[in-house]
């Protein structure tokens, strides 16, 4: 194994690990969405059912950004 190759690979893997922190942000976002949904649903249970779809759309949007960071990590790991 050449030393230079290892250095590049190390940088890529460190970058992949750093990119994974973005997934934590997505987790916070999704938790925030669902937590607020449940808080609202407990206050007004009759309106909860009609807003489930909205909650899932919100989850999808915030989750997408986490998936982007996951994708960046994968690209760094595999697609050099």
């Amino acid at each position: 194994m050449a030393v230079e190759g290892d250095l590049v690979q190390m940088g890529a893997l460190v970058g992949a690990g750093l990119a994974c922190t973005g997934m934590g942000g997505a987790a916070v976002g999704v938790g925030h969405v669902v937590g607020n949904y449940i808080a609202g649903a407990l206050r007004n249970p009759s309106a909860a059912a009609s807003q489930t779809a909205t909650m899932f759309i919100g989850i999808a949007f915030s989750e997408a950004l986490g998936i982007f960071s996951f994708l960046v990590a994968l690209l760094l790991m595999y697609a050099q």
Binding site: A60, F61, E63, A64, I67, F68, F70, L71
Partner: peptide, 9 residues
């Protein structure tokens, strides 16, 4: 995002 969300998950 539409495609990568599904594929990534």
């Amino acid at each position: 995002s539409h495609s990568i969300r599904l594929m990534g998950n």
